[in-house]
Amino acid sequence: MSGIYNDPIGHWVVVVLAIALLLFVVLTATAYTVWFERVALGHIQRRPGPNRVGPYGLLQLAADGIKLAFKESFVPAKTEKLLYVVAPTIAVAAAFLSWAVIPIGLWYNVQYWIADINIGILLIFGLSSLNVYAIFLGGYASENKFSLLGGLRSAAQLISYELALGLALVPTFMIVGSLRLRDIVEYTVTWGPYHGPIPLILLTPIGFVVYIIAAVAETNRAPFDLPEAEQELIGGFLTEYSGLKFVMYYLAEYVNMITVAALAALLFFGGWYLWFVPPILAFLLKVVLFLFLYIWLRGTFPRLRYDMLMRLGWKVLLPLAIVNVVVTGVILVATQG
């Protein structure tokens, strides 16, 4: 197996196969995230959720997908045509590209990921910032008051929370000394008799709290879903979108959700290490738990008012993250010299 990597053509064959496989896996995972969300939200509201199409409603997403795919590809008359069409593709492309560097697991020395680059986490942040363009351009190009308001909210919100999100992870990088996701997961400590990888949440608990709040805001999910805010803005930037263009935004939202859940598992909960559980299963388990946290938050909290959102971001999360960085730095210098 290792010989095929050294051959230039064989290497590309492996990479292309891996990309195709990952695309399939992420798409399927997205579909079942939507199913999981609908069922979990249903149970939070004491109802069963979708259970008609297929066993336990598992084929509901196939039915929805077929319905959306056969909808008319409609472009409203007064839109900026080019931007209107390009904006959703930015969203979906940025969302999927992140998965190029997310390590899924290491099993019997086989790497289950596409690229093991040394700035993986930076690349993911860069790509998640592109999502702002998708939402803002979509809102702007729709030539609709509600869409524009949604886009503006999104731009302000994402810029605000990106700072806290980035700073929340800095202590992790300071402790590990690497931006490569694999190094972060494999960070090893020797504590008395124990020698092995640890979940980094033990070392940066505040970083985790700030990260998870900022990440929910970053992915525009409830209770920070102001850009789409159905009650006030109809659908925000989504108002004028339908059919496959709507699907692209929808897909991007859920892929981003999974990305954020996967990052939380990798950065704070030891990725694919979990006692005796097989690596990929362990990773999947952690991601599903974080997805449940997302849905749980959505089912519990009402949406924040816009000024409260800004206050939380700038006056609470950002100072907390900065203090966290400083304190971690002081402790690191004190313990390691």
Partner: peptide, 20 residues
């Protein structure tokens, strides 16, 4: 906030009240 989360989790594990 924690009380809210506890409430919804309790509801999550309760049987559905709707009829199919």
């Amino acid at each position: 906030l924690a009380t809210g989360l506890k409430t919804t989790l309790g509801e999550f594990f309760s049987p559905a009240v709707t009829l199919e």
